[in-house]
């Protein structure tokens, strides 16, 4: 009973938040609705028994990716008239993308109905190995059967990270930076001199 209520609550909120993401006029509101959608999708995953994926969704998407989205969108100076003009121009492309997504969804549902993929057991319980928690099951698969794919994904991410750093890195001249270790290593003897100059005579520095 409670599961059913929770499912319909999360599902409705996910869809509503998704719809509001594209309907909201203010881009910041859009990002915030997207976050609500992510959050409810995580709730759905908890219901499906995939709590590890749910937590990762919240940590990675809500906690990091969406924050950066928000960061960027908040600092943008958005011209709504220009945005509308872009809407008409990009409409065919968007339509094409929507059609592709719908086709994928239909194919996916069809494959699942045909029994092509075994995502879960038919009675709705999660398809983890008996006696193993979610994390252990995923870990055991990821580091044995899919080890090379996992490592390939890691290398791709590493390359992407290095690429982003190289693209945005710039050397600025004339900046007086701080060298912390030099500051820490500096002793009073290096920095100060005790002098007793005679009257009328200066000090050579």
């Amino acid at each position: 009973m409670i599961q059913v209520i929770a499912f319909y609550l999360f599902a409705t909120l996910t869809i509503a938040a998704g719809a509001l993401t594209i309907l909201a006029r203010n881009p910041v509101h859009s990002v915030l609705w997207l976050i609500v959608a992510f959050f409810n999708a995580a709730g759905l995953m908890v219901l499906a028994g995939a709590e590890f994926i749910a937590m990762l969704l919240v940590i990675v998407y809500v906690g990091a990716v969406a924050v950066l989205f928000l960061f960027v969108v908040m600092m943008l100076d958005i011209d709504f008239a220009e945005l509308r003009a872009g809407f008409v121009k990009n409409f065919p492309l968007g339509l094409l993308l929507a059609i592709v997504l719908v086709c994928e969804l239909v194919l996916g549902i069809g494959a699942e109905r045909a029994g092509g993929i075994q995502l879960g057991t038919p009675d709705g319980t999660a398809a983890t190995a008996a006696g193993a928690s979610n994390i252990e099951a995923i870990g055991a698969l990821l580091y044995s059967k899919y080890l090379f794919l996992f490592e390939a994904a890691g290398i791709i991410l590493l390359v992407a990270m290095i690429g982003a750093i190289v693209l945005t890195h710039r050397q600025r001249g004339g900046v007086r930076g701080q060298n912390i270790s030099r500051q820490v290593a500096r002793r009073p003897e290096d920095a100060t001199v005790n002098m007793q100059p005679e009257v009328g005579k200066g000090v050579q520095l």
């Binding site: 937590m55 990762l56 919240v58 809500v62 906690g63």
Partner: peptide
């Protein structure tokens, strides 16, 4: 996933 939950919430 208790500790991951803490990380998720703190994020």
């Amino acid at each position: 996933v208790g500790l991951l939950y803490v990380l998720a919430i703190s994020s």
